[in-house]
């Protein structure tokens, strides 16, 4: 009953925005870093945050799980990343891709960019389907295999994804640190230009294609998608109540059909479909709110 009211009034839209902003501030709360150009060095950086948030961002309070995964895999001698993988699994089982839809600051940025009033591009079905696999290739190749097996003279390896791809690192770490540190600015060369180019592509992509990076490129989203079928936070679609108006598909930032692909790997559990549904057929399926648990 309460859930239905929440959906019809679109109240969850406001709650989602509050959660997204609070989460971005919570993970990037070291304001002093933005003044002095130094990164936070406190003990909270022991912990991996659930989102793609560069630990070289001057405001970051925690460690990026994707960067940490590469750091452990790339250690001289090689190590199995129990700690990082364990934390990621716990986040995956408890939150699933709600991390992408509700907590990720880079997701919030893409949501804001998608509000720029330009005609959105619809990627043709087959190309869209193929491109969605790119994030799994990036996860396997750049985050796991290359850092684990492509070692240098010291026996260690570089964080391949961070070094050659991650636009979040360029935006959250690279740009503010280079603005605040003239010494670092003098070191910027072709690699920085390459990363700026990738950031520009990502930003442009997000303006024309909603959640462009989440949809096609994010290795963390790819990892969490493995838990979509059984994560604790899920969505529920009541097909009997569905009037097939298609409003849920229209508002879906991942361009999926929420009724057909409910709790699928591409659903980021943002709840927009529930907001848009005129018959309240789609809602969150939280264990504490299910009918059986209420009895």
């Amino acid at each position: 009953m309460h859930r239905d009211r929440l959906n019809r009034s679109g109240k969850f839209r406001k709650i989602r925005h509050v959660i997204q902003i609070c989460s971005a501030v919570f993970f990037n709360g070291y304001i002093a870093g933005l003044r002095n150009g130094r990164i936070f060095t406190g003990k909270t950086k022991l912990f991996c945050v659930p989102v793609l948030n560069c630990y070289s961002c001057p405001a970051a309070l925690g460690a990026c799980p994707i960067g940490s995964l590469q750091a452990v895999l790339g250690t001289a001698g090689g190590r199995f990343p129990f700690y990082v993988l364990g934390i990621l699994m716990l986040f995956g089982v408890i939150l699933g891709r709600a991390v992408c839809g509700l907590l990720c600051p880079f997701g919030l940025l893409q949501d804001l960019l998608s509000r720029i009033p330009v005609r959105k591009v619809s990627v043709p079905g087959k190309a869209d389907c193929l491109l969605r696999y790119v994030k799994y290739v990036i996860l396997t190749l750049f985050v796991i295999l290359l850092p684990a097996f492509f070692t240098d003279g010291t026996g260690g390896s570089v964080p391949w994804f961070c070094k050659f791809i991650c636009p979040a690192g360029t935006l959250e770490g690279g740009i503010p640190l280079l603005i605040l540190n003239p010494d670092l600015r003098s070191l910027a060369g072709p690699l920085f230009m390459w990363k700026m180019l990738l950031l520009a592509v990502t930003v442009t992509g997000a303006i024309f294609i909603r959640r462009f990076f989440c949809r096609y490129l994010c290795p963390l989203g790819a990892f969490y998608s493995l838990f979509s079928k059984f994560s604790l936070i899920r969505m529920k679609a009541d097909r009997a109540s569905c009037i097939e108006c298609g409003k849920c598909s229209e508002v879906c930032p991942m361009s999926i059909d929420p009724v057909q692909q409910i709790n699928g790997t591409e659903c980021i559990l943002c709840g927009r479909c529930g907001d848009a549904c005129p018959s309240s057929a789609i809602s969150y399926d939280l264990p504490v709110l299910t009918e059986s648990s209420r009895k």
């Binding site: 460690a63 990026c64 961070c162 690192g169 770490g173 640190l177 280079l178 070191l187 390459w194």
Partner: peptide, 15 residues
Amino acid sequence: VLNKAVRICLECIGI
């Protein structure tokens, strides 16, 4: 994780 996270990761920021 801590050692990596408390130093500026030059690779991450693109230099």
